[in-house]
Design a protein around this nucleic acid. Sequence first.
DNA 1: AATTCGGGGCG
DNA 2: CGCCCAGAATT
Length: 365
Amino acid sequence: MMSNWSEQEKQQFPDNLVTWYEDEKRELPWRENRDPYRVWVSEIMLQQTQVDTVIPYFERFMTLFPTMHIFAEAPEELILKAWEGLGYYSRVRNLQTAMKEVVELYDGIVPTDKETVLALKGVGPYTAGAILSIAYNQPEPAVDGNVYRVYSRLMEIEDDIAKAKTRKVFEKVVAETISQTNPGAFNQALMDLGATICTPKNPKCAACPVAQYCRSHASGTMLNFPVKTKKIKTKQRYLVTAIIQNNAGEILVQQRPETGLLANMWMFPSIEADKPFADLATSFKIGLDLPVYVNQESLGQVKHVFSHLKWEVETLTGIITTDEFKLPENYRFVSITAMKHLPFPVPYQKVWQLYLKTRSGMRDE
DNA sequence: AATTCGGGGCG
DNA sequence: CGCCCAGAATT
C-alpha cells in the first residue's frame, strides 16, 4: 500500500518527530551511548517485554557481562540465571550463539551489513533494523508493535497485523517517511511515541507531536487501529511437583530438556498431564520412579499463566528413603545455597515460596 | 501461515 | 479474565 500522505507531509513528518524526541525522550540505560553490544542486548531483552521490566535486567546484565567477549564465554547456567524471570529464555541462548559467532568471525565487531545481521541467531527483521538504525545510523525500518499502532493510526492502515505479510506493508510506509539524517532517533521516537502518547487504550492525542499528520485523529477512529484478528486459546495443564530432601537436607532438582518450554531451566521433580491427577502421591511416585517417600498431604496449588497455556501445580514434599540408587543425568541434589545459583522459571519460584511459607507456618503453630 | 516460545502490567 | 508488550524460530 502506498501512503496517503502528500509529499510535503512525508518531508516534514520525520523532522517534527525527531525534534520532539530530542526534547522529550526517555532516559534509558541503553541510551547512554550507541555501543552496538548494548543496543543489541537491549533490543533482545525488549522483545515482547516492557521497558520498566527490562531496566533492572539490563543493568545487571551489563555488570555481569560488560563486554561481548565476556558474555560469549560465560557458562549457560550463568546467562540463564541473568535472564531468570524475563521469559522467552531461548532469547539469551540465541544471543550467546550469535555473539560467539561475531567474536569468532568478525573479531567482536557487530556487522553493519543488513543480510549479515539478519543471519544472526535471534535477530529478525525488527531487531536488525533497530541495531542498524540505532547503532550505525542506517535508515532501516524497525517495525514492532508500537510502529504497527502508530502508523496504522497515522494513515488508517487497515491491514491485519496478525498476518505475516502485513509487516512488509508497514516497512514500506516507514521507509517512505523515515528520517534520512537521524534514522536512529526517528525509530526510537516511534517507540517512545507508542509507549507514552499513542497508547493502545487511551491515546493522549492532545499531547501528540504529530497529530496534525494523523488521519485517525482527524476522523476520531484511533481506537479502531491497529486491526488485529488473531485470538489464541490457552490450554490447561496439570502438574505434580515435590520438594524432596535427602538425609543431608539437600534438595532434589531436575533440569528440563534442552528444547521446548523453559529449555535447560531447573525445576523440582515434576510430572505433567492434561487432566488432574486422581492420587497425587501415587501418581508422582509412579511418574518419577525414584525411591522416595511422598507425603499424602499437598502443600497446596500454584497457578501460573503462560502466553499459550496455564499450569496448575500441586506441590508435595518427600524424603529419599535410600541413598542406594543412581541419580539420572538430569537430576542433582543441591544445598539451598547452591540452588539459588540455578535458573528456575517463575512457576517453580512460586512453588519454593509456597514451601517456605508452609514451613514458617508450622514453626508458628 | 500457524504455532510455540514467559512473564508482567493494566483496564 | 483478555489484551498488550522495542518478536523470532520452528513447524
